Computed example of a mutant assay.
Amino acid sequence: MISCRAPGKLFIAGEYAVVEPGHLAVLTAVDRYATATVTGVSAGTATTLHSDLDGGVSLTLGRDGDRLVPATPDATVPAAFAYVFAAASVLDRLRAERGIDSGAYTLTVSADLGDADGRKYGLGSSAAVTVATVAALGRFHGLELTAMDRYRLAVLATIAVNPRASCGDVAVSTWGGWLAYGSPDRAVVAATAAADGIDAALRATWPGLSIRPLPTPTGLDLRVGWTGNPASTPALVGAASRTKGDRTVFNARSNECVTRLRTAIEADDSAGVGSEIDHARELLLDLDASAGLGIMTPRLRALCAAGAAVGAAAKPSGAGGGDCGIALVDRAHPAASTELTDRWVAAGIRPLPLRTHPFEGETA
């Protein structure tokens, strides 16, 4: 039995801009996880996927020539298995390219990235599930994958389901810690894999990609509040993609903000970090006002207002429209954290007791 886990994520800054190739974001990994467990089964037994997501479901796989396919009457993949199946398919293609014999298995996926009633917190469950699945199946197939290999394979799986995904969440679920991230050109990546194979895509240059670990700020506490309203990131990002005129200026200003934020984090400049978090929020507010995306829900506005009232920098984390917001509170003023919690609870916002999952491995 092989078991691998991957952490969830929070966007610190750079949302929306980072979906365009080469644009920038800062993210951090959090200590909520998806876990993938693989057990080999005897020859002649079907490969089966199990998941505790969406109430618990299973999917049996078969083969159509050299391809893994769902053994369902209409050969469709249920939504609950979209990313897991995509990851299994990409790993199976790589296995075949490297001349490694196939073996049947049972893969079980679980996660603690949402509420007890199944509502997601917006912590990147799809990315964490994909990264954990890639890691577990990579070991099962004996592929000897580096961290960069696992990231790239998880990207290939992710964009097979959602081509517009920035995959910043995939990066931070792979490496953990705080990361500065530049998104690759996913169209080029997908074309390389389609034309030359998965192994070639692992070795190729990915235009726009940059991954750089950042230190965890020492003078600030990262606080996370959940609005109780799950949001659809693909839907919001898709709507934003149709506002090209507004996006050009927004993207440039977002990159400038993220670059300054990265510099402040590396200098452990708490005031500078807070200033850029506030600036990132204002950029999102401007984008929301011009494009009418619904990024800032009433509870996210309340979350940010509560942060400002106690002297903290606060903003939505991710696409907005619900899910989580963050606040960075000066550790020299512990009373501010207590007051922030009280204000959030009074506004119907649930504080989430999350900590940073540490950086692991090399990015080269």
Rank of each mutant, 00 (worst) to 15 (best):
N251L: 01
G99D: 07
S125P: 08
S89I: 02
A289G: 14
L91P: 08
A291D: 11
V18N: 06
A132G: 07
M296Y: 14
V131H: 00
T39L: 08
T341N: 04
V26G: 08
G177D: 13
S42Q: 14
A165Y: 11
T218C: 08
N251I: 04
A267M: 08
Y83N: 03
T338Q: 04
G14A: 05
G40M: 06
A193W: 01
T248D: 15
R301I: 12
A309T: 11
S126F: 03
R5W: 10
V84I: 14
D74V: 02
G114K: 03
S58R: 01
A193D: 03
A204Q: 10
S173W: 01
M296T: 11
A71T: 08
L202F: 05
D112M: 10
P73Q: 00
T108H: 15
C257Y: 00
S275I: 02
T39V: 15
I295W: 09
L49Y: 09
A267P: 04
L145K: 06
G182M: 12
V69N: 06
I12Y: 03
L59K: 01
R164F: 15
V188A: 15
V188C: 13
D246W: 00
A305M: 08
H279Q: 11
T28L: 15
T263K: 05
D199C: 01
D74K: 01
A104W: 04
A136T: 06
T174N: 11
G219T: 04
S51D: 12
G8P: 06
L202R: 01
P70I: 14
L153D: 10
T363V: 15
A13W: 07
D92K: 00
V131Q: 00
V172D: 14
A136S: 13
E282W: 03
K9Q: 07
F359T: 03
T158E: 15
I12T: 04
T28S: 13
L340R: 00
P234L: 05
L214I: 11
P316F: 05
F81W: 00
A200E: 09
A136R: 08
V188Q: 13
S317I: 14
F250V: 11
G307W: 04
L220A: 04
A111F: 01
L283T: 06
V41N: 04
G40H: 07
G245Y: 08
T37V: 05
G62P: 06
L303T: 09
A200M: 04
G56L: 10
G182V: 00
K315P: 07
I211C: 13
T363W: 05
L209M: 14
A71L: 12
A314Y: 06
V131A: 00
G44N: 04
A319Y: 01
R152L: 12
G272Q: 06
A87S: 13
A264E: 14
H357N: 07
S166F: 08
S102H: 13
R203L: 15
I211H: 07
L91N: 01
G168T: 02
I277A: 05
A154H: 05
G177Y: 10
G311V: 12
G348S: 10
Y121T: 00
A136D: 10
V38H: 10
R247C: 02
L156M: 15
Y83R: 02
V172L: 14
A13E: 02
R343D: 13
A180P: 05
P230A: 07
A335K: 00
S126P: 06
P316A: 14
I211Y: 02
T243I: 00
V30S: 06
H333M: 13
G176M: 03
